[in-house]
Computed example of a mutant assay.
Amino acid sequence: MLDHTLDSFDGITLELEKFRGTDDQLLTELCAVIALSRINLKRLIWVTLQGSLTRFISVFLDYGFIFHNCQGSTAVLVLKLQDSAYIPFSPTHTIGVGGFVLSEGELLCVKGHSASSNLKLPGGTVDRGEKIVDEVIREVYEETGITCKFSSVLGFATKSPVQFGYTDMYFVCELLALDRDISVKDTVEIKQAQWIDIDCYLNGDHSSPFNQQVVQMSLKKLGLAPVNQESYADPIAKQEIFWASA
Rank of each mutant, 00 (worst) to 15 (best):
I95Q: 15
T187F: 00
I196W: 00
L27Y: 06
G165K: 08
V110L: 11
E130R: 15
I146D: 03
L27E: 13
P91E: 05
E17R: 09
T147L: 13
L202T: 07
D197K: 09
F100C: 00
F164Q: 13
F171Q: 02
K42S: 08
T5S: 11
D3L: 13
P91V: 07
S114N: 14
F100A: 00
S37P: 00
K149C: 02
E29P: 00
Q213E: 05
S245E: 12
L222K: 06
A177C: 08
L121G: 04
D186L: 07
Q229F: 08
S183K: 15
E189G: 02
D168E: 12
Q213D: 07
L14I: 12
G123F: 01
H4F: 14
S90V: 01
N211H: 09
D186R: 15
S116A: 01
T28A: 12
A157M: 08
D24M: 06
G145F: 10
L121E: 06
L108Y: 01
F9D: 15
E139I: 01
K80T: 08
E230Y: 11
A32G: 09
I182Y: 04
L16Y: 06
P91D: 02
V227T: 07
F19V: 06
T22F: 05
V78G: 13
Q216F: 02
L53I: 02
L14S: 02
E17H: 10
I132E: 01
L154V: 01
